[in-house]
Write a protein that binds this DNA or RNA. Sequence first.
DNA 1: TATGAATGAGCGTTCATTCAT
DNA 2: TATGAATGAACGCTCATTCAT
Lengths: 221, 221, 221, 221
Amino acid sequence: MSTVRARAATAIPGLRVRRAAERRAAIIDAALDLFTSRGFAATRMEDVAAAAGVAKGTVYLNFTDKEALFEGIVRTVIGPTVREIQAIDFAAIPCVREAIERVGLPAVKDMATSRRGDIARLLISEGPRFPRLAEFYYREVVAPGVAQMRLLLERAVETGEIADGRVAEFPQLLAAPILMAIIWQALFQRLAPLDIDGLLRAQLDVLLGRPSWSSRGSHAP
Amino acid sequence: MSTVRARAATAIPGLRVRRAAERRAAIIDAALDLFTSRGFAATRMEDVAAAAGVAKGTVYLNFTDKEALFEGIVRTVIGPTVREIQAIDFAAIPCVREAIERVGLPAVKDMATSRRGDIARLLISEGPRFPRLAEFYYREVVAPGVAQMRLLLERAVETGEIADGRVAEFPQLLAAPILMAIIWQALFQRLAPLDIDGLLRAQLDVLLGRPSWSSRGSHAP
Amino acid sequence: MSTVRARAATAIPGLRVRRAAERRAAIIDAALDLFTSRGFAATRMEDVAAAAGVAKGTVYLNFTDKEALFEGIVRTVIGPTVREIQAIDFAAIPCVREAIERVGLPAVKDMATSRRGDIARLLISEGPRFPRLAEFYYREVVAPGVAQMRLLLERAVETGEIADGRVAEFPQLLAAPILMAIIWQALFQRLAPLDIDGLLRAQLDVLLGRPSWSSRGSHAP
Amino acid sequence: MSTVRARAATAIPGLRVRRAAERRAAIIDAALDLFTSRGFAATRMEDVAAAAGVAKGTVYLNFTDKEALFEGIVRTVIGPTVREIQAIDFAAIPCVREAIERVGLPAVKDMATSRRGDIARLLISEGPRFPRLAEFYYREVVAPGVAQMRLLLERAVETGEIADGRVAEFPQLLAAPILMAIIWQALFQRLAPLDIDGLLRAQLDVLLGRPSWSSRGSHAP
DNA sequence: TATGAATGAGCGTTCATTCAT
DNA sequence: TATGAATGAACGCTCATTCAT
């Protein structure tokens, strides 16, 4: 999954620049892996370097600090996420439930399984010791995410999918099962694997009611 | 002289025994505080000793290791929890919603605010590096907790509070908002405090329907 | 010259305390040796520890820092010097020249040869980078020393040994050859050893006139 | 293309040669500044390069080593000094005191204030670690300087300005106040500025007697 | 020739753990 | 049993030096 490097100079961006970018990417890649699996404190800079295929000093050419490396990871990985979240337009959705199942669920499963989930877990673990990062994450990911989820719930109230308008005051309810899934996977996967898909659908069921068109069981009259 | 003291100690759980137990308790107390606020790696054994009012060496008389100390904390704090959880008998509950609001919510809020929440957060952070502990926690807390929640949901199906029986297959839905609350508090309290009570009630609303007897909103005819 | 240690506990000051003091002394001793011969930056803390016969960490039990160790050395070695300097009473000296030859010269030669000279040279080298230390040295050694030398010269004016009173305005003239000796020894001893004694006496000759009682050359009529 | 440029370079000491010489000069200049103010060890090659306006690698095109750079500085700065010192002809001086005041004092003050003083201080600091350099400095500066001063003092004996011929055996007495001035300035200027001019004149006063022509104090009959 | 990204040996400092008292 | 001085492995970071461009 990691290591890029090599690859001959192709053309425009200049060989040096290209290589530098690749190195930086490799370092972030390696560091994310290690921070995620061992935690921030238990990860040695030397291991990051080795995993990225560079020398110890090279890491410091890209990041002033171990902390800066941590920040760099979060910012880099989170960057695209923010834009994706904010790009979604819920205005004209006819059926919220359908929209979520079609668009949201895959994204969420990606979240729970991929890098982005790792970042979330990392932040849960180390956030209290990196308030600046927690704030950054809140501003860039959590706040916009919550805002969008609120819009979604409000739309669901409009379409009649949600009866009780007060639920829209707690968009966190939409995120809670995702969080649960991320953490459960990290801690108990070996012991008792969780049916993430089922969990998320079940929460949608209780929030929005069961859809007639759902791919899962239909009650014929 | 040492003979005298030794004999005295064996007579009843005399002074020395009590002192030893108190010491151990003080160490666990101090360590939990520090592990929670600084994390496992960033907590120095010397600080634990100082905070507990004992000498560095004394910690090692009680726990062979820093890891053993960590385990000791978790086991000690969790111990009572398990028994409490398993002591509850949901068999004859007439109204699940009421039972939860009366008994569960206070317990949960205690969880999100107290030691027990700290332990949970600590385990979320350090669990991946202490698989044995994660397993212990699963066996002693999570598994029984999930089992009890499943019973509760099944009872709710019986009483008709839950229409869709499949929800009972995901007791995690009952715990998800609690987890969300614990983590949100730890990371974003300063930035955007969360109405924990509201969040938990809202989830109960969507799971069990809004109660007529609830102290909040009443439907006048 | 270094290493003390061992020696069984004798009595009162408590074995632990005694040992600790000896260790500290050994560290200062070793560090002075090394700083003097290699300079501050080129001396490794590990070498200091090894030369003092202790482990690396032990140095840090006594001095928070490499800088603190440097300061500790200077203060410790300088301490007695100050008191000695200020204890001298020039008030009733009948012949300044004689007083200097009897008391001053031996002290000065000790200075140029011993630890105290090393400290001076060390401060000349590293002083600009340790302004606080330079100030400390000025306040504790240089200023009182200059003051005493001024008194001495003024007394010489009174006794008629010095004709031109304005010389007393520059007590540094008394110290200049000492400084020269210290530095010459450090740099050029191998290449061209300097007759320190002769140098100092010659300066006294020009400052105070040649004494009739001097052990060297007598003026036959 | 490279051929053309190379040929142009060999024609006359053309652009590239000049540029190279300038670069070298700039590097030495920068390095002297930095070595003087921070010391040898604390000066980074990168800083030298930056201060000289060249890239890090360029420094290594001119000096194989950090040590070689140090040597280069000393040799370059000292070079002219030696020739100047040895060019002076004391043979026909009518009045040594006057000669010193007219020629020597300005030179000395320049010494205590300028580059050359910096070099001296640098050598006092780092000399013990660079024996080869100390030897070079001794051979090129100190030995000829001492020789010239000895000549000067012997001339003063001839002119009758010095009564006691034995003083001429210690030419260092002439240099001692200069040394004192250089070091005092470096360490204690902030705390207690020294009247360098006065100090040097005072030493001349005691060595050679007060001059009648001196601009200071005149003995009216 | 000039550049500056890359290297990796080296050092200051920390801290879990031991053990003489 | 309790202490805390002593230990030394480990790690973050620096910087002299190299070399592909």
